[in-house]
Nucleic acid binder design. Structure first.
Lengths: 127, 127
DNA sequence: GCTTACGTTTACGTAAACGTCAACCCTCAC
DNA sequence: GTGAGGGTTGACGTTTACGTAAACGTAAGC
């Protein structure tokens, strides 16, 4: 639970290259401070990196991920902004639910395939 | 429930371009027959296209999707092959479960954000 | 004082997944 | 027979998400 991290620490912890981390900074996803010219990452940066990687596992593009990160630390704005923001949230929720549905379908199909496969296996072993 | 489809029919039904469909054929994901030089898609092709698009929504690459498609119509092989195949299935299942977990986390966080947002909204309206 | 290890910037390279022409072929209604 | 609306094959362009190499700074250890 350190209060700051070097780039290689983060790279090792999350199994990405330093290049990748720097690239994410270029894209405005991370904002490390500097000690001289060296990057210093705060726990907040670490969390954001974790969120970025989670987004990637879900197949979102970096710009979509940026949108989501922006949601996490959005300044509470005026009413109109908030309504619009709620809409964005719902849109993303819809996407995620669609994905979850797709996953359920695929998992079921994998079960079917495995069952057939196991049936075949015992058949082969018996013969 | 037609017995065959043209490329534009499929393109319209699934909201992709014909270019995309032809590209998937180049990648060996679809195998339409020909009437003269025109492509003719069978219901099987249609299902495969649907599976491809589902895979895309889950963020899988086309080569990963090809692997999954291969699973669907794998010839029941010999015992060793089958064991290996079962391993592949489990690997993919693991990925999907990880994704599902990621989705659950993200959905929860969206709920939190929305709650905060709504709280802010009533606050703004009251003041 | 030299190497080694880690960091930096700059910049060009690349693989994936298409988009976007161009140039061509059918065929069918007018 | 012509032109409009479908289809076809190249082939080059584009975006995203980094990889990779060059050229350099800095602090640690011998």
């Amino acid at each position: 639970m350190s209060s700051h991290y070097t780039i290689t620490q983060l790279a090792q912890e999350f199994d990405v290259t330093t290049r990748t981390i720097r690239f994410y900074e270029d894209q405005g996803l991370l904002n490390p401070t500097r000690n001289g010219q060296m990057r210093v990452y705060s726990p907040r940066d670490r969390v954001r990196l974790k969120l970025v990687l989670r987004g990637k596992r879900l197949g979102f593009s970096l710009s979509e991920i940026r949108e989501m990160l922006d949601m996490y630390d959005a300044e509470p704005g005026e009413s109109g902004q908030l309504e619009l923001f709620l809409a964005k949230i719902n849109e993303r929720r819809g996407l995620l639910q669609q994905q979850r549905h797709d996953i359920e379908l695929t998992l079921k199909e994998l079960d079917d395939i495995e069952a057939q496969c196991r049936a075949q296996l015992t058949k082969v072993k018996v013969s």
